[in-house]
Amino acid sequence: MGIEHTFRHKHILGLENLTEDDISLVIQTAESFREISNRSIKKVPTLRGRTVINLFFEPSTRTKLSFEIAAKRLSADTFSISKSTSSATKGETLVDTALNLEAMKPDIIIIRHSSSGAAQLLAKHLDASIINAGDGTHEHPSQGLLDLMTVKEKKGTIAGLTVAIIGDIAHSRVAHSDIIGFTKMGATVRVSGPATMMPRYLEQLGAQVCLSPREAVKGADVIMALRIQQERQLDPLIPSLREYAAFFGITEDILKLAKPDVIIMHPGPINRGVEMDPALADGSHSVILDQVTNGVAVRMALLYLLAGGD
């Protein structure tokens, strides 16, 4: 590593707990792991003998697969458990489930859960390292880190950039981690979307709230469109996806307001034609697939930093 910094965390619960130096170290570590993914034999023995458990209480293909691939490329033994939150609430509690897993002595437990704070709860009860793979509307740190890594890869730096995040900010743990991560690394973050999807207190967390997406995108280096998750809402916050697409979708027209070399990001999976013009997702500004590739590298870095030390 070309950096004099030791990673002192036992868990990855959120970007809120990481310092600027921690984040730089994760990105640098991930950059070196990205090279492994380009080899023909994509495997190193770094975590041989270590056990990693994926504990997913919410349906997820992409994040779970990304963590599984990351663990396997580091030669860890990995197991995935998917539980539906509804069946889990009927039977044993989350703490019970986790204590049962703990008895099998895993080194790292990766958890996704619909309740904010679920990863903290495990960290409080278990000896294993916990990685938060998304908890409720709180944080999704590995996604935030891969977004930072992707922007750094494309722009060379993060400090001084303007990042516009468009969509359902209130219900997005990705937005939350991105706001924390990008502001921590010196970028300016603007958010926009239907006002019913904006939490009231975002400005105190360091984001500028714009009622008009055009205003948010003006001069931006990065545009991040968030997935509209109708299924996570307790009640509908917008009248229709059609109206959302018409007023908040990213179009060629809006893109003209951003910097000419703006990059377009999306945490996936995209509702095509809702969050952005289909052509833009596949166009030259899009770095959506780089995000996916970097996701594996960032997750390898996190596993390595937590369990590869000794």
Binding site: G117, D135, H176, R200, L205, L234
Partner: peptide
């Protein structure tokens, strides 16, 4: 108040709690 679990404010926003 539906679905809420703490005071609506900076802390609920930070913790991702309704």
């Amino acid at each position: 108040s539906r679905g809420g679990c703490m005071n609506d404010g900076v802390i609920s926003t930070r913790l991702g709690l309704r």
